[in-house]
Design a protein around this nucleic acid. Structure first.
Lengths: 175, 175
DNA sequence: TCCAACTCGTTCGGACCCGAACGATATTGT
DNA sequence: ACAATATCGTTCGGGTCCGAACGAGTTGGA
């Protein structure tokens, strides 16, 4: 369903396609794939920056720190590698994020009772309170940035993205 | 069109919704919005990490460095603030990225002929050659990660994402 | 038993990322 | 003409972010 874009947007996009095609003549680029990936990335960056500025900054939390805290609040204590996987960052990065959370008094590390290598991360009462306070505002902004989409469109969007996510899971599994 | 997910994925998602709803009882969270934003962010991270690992690492380029070089190759020389806007990073960040590009011999800074405040960034011949070499591989991976989507689905995805992008533009415009 | 192979989380180096503060330059109003 | 204001890119501090190297702890087989 083209033509549903605002005309400015549409014209700009078709011009961009001509420019890129001209710059890579003969390479046979898949423009639909290029556009899809580019839009996913632009949108993620814009949403993240917006919500970090409007919601998280006043609480001194980064996106990753808040997501970590959210996961701990909903699913309880988690071992580091599980939490990292859930949040979508590496264990090395998580060490820094949890250290920040600990310094702010939002979370706490505990040694695993039977396996000395493992660390269990847990939200403190203060951390859980912070999530309770922040999440409704956070979610309100999620609703605002997606208010241009119907419920069906939002489900379609999520559905397509999960398809890409599954492809990537399978890809990284093999490697 | 629910039920189009694999059953595992679907079950996992409905369980997650129950857990989150239970943790925030009474807050009346907009779950569709939460899911859409969460999926955009997860997908962007997964795609970026995958392509940085599989395509960019061997050339010593980050995602932002490559996107910057791509923009310069397609649209020619650009002033710093234009390039930053195009790439989706702040001018402060761009300074570092361009410095890296310059150190590697992929780009060059020039003073604006009539305005002493401005800097013009330009890809070198080596930089343009690098983009020519990398872009087809980069695009092949873009095609691979979206191969689970039909052409119509990819267009739908891009369309919905651009809707969100426009909402954010308007939001940040006012502020 | 005991040690090689494995699995954790941390540390480290290098790059990115933002926002605020800054210095240099340009523009505007009077 | 010239000061007040605005704009541009850089610098800085704090915080991610990754991958590789590492040390501590665990496990499985000879």
């Amino acid at each position: 369903m083209p033509g549903a874009f605002s005309s400015d947007d549409d014209a700009e996009m078709r011009q961009a396609e001509r420019d890129v095609t001209a710059a890579f003549a003969g390479s046979g680029l898949d423009f639909g794939a290029l556009l899809a990936v580019s839009n996913v990335f632009r949108t993620a960056t814009a949403v993240r920056n917006h919500i970090e500025r409007e919601v998280l900054r006043e609480h001194g939390l980064s996106w990753s720190a808040f997501v970590s805290l959210f996961v701990l609040k909903v699913w309880g204590a988690k071992e580091s590698h599980e939490l990292a996987k859930e949040v979508g960052i590496t264990v090395g990065t998580l060490t820094g994020v949890v250290s920040t959370l600990e310094r702010r008094g939002f979370a706490k590390r505990t040694s695993h009772p039977s396996d000395g290598r493992r660390q269990v991360v847990k939200a403190t009462a203060k951390g859980r309170r912070a999530v309770d306070e922040i999440m409704p505002v956070f979610n309100k902004h999620e609703a605002i940035v997606t208010e241009g989409l119907t419920d069906a469109a939002r489900e379609q969007l999520s559905h397509h993205l999960r398809t890409v996510l599954r492809t990537l899971d399978a890809l990284d599994q093999d490697a």
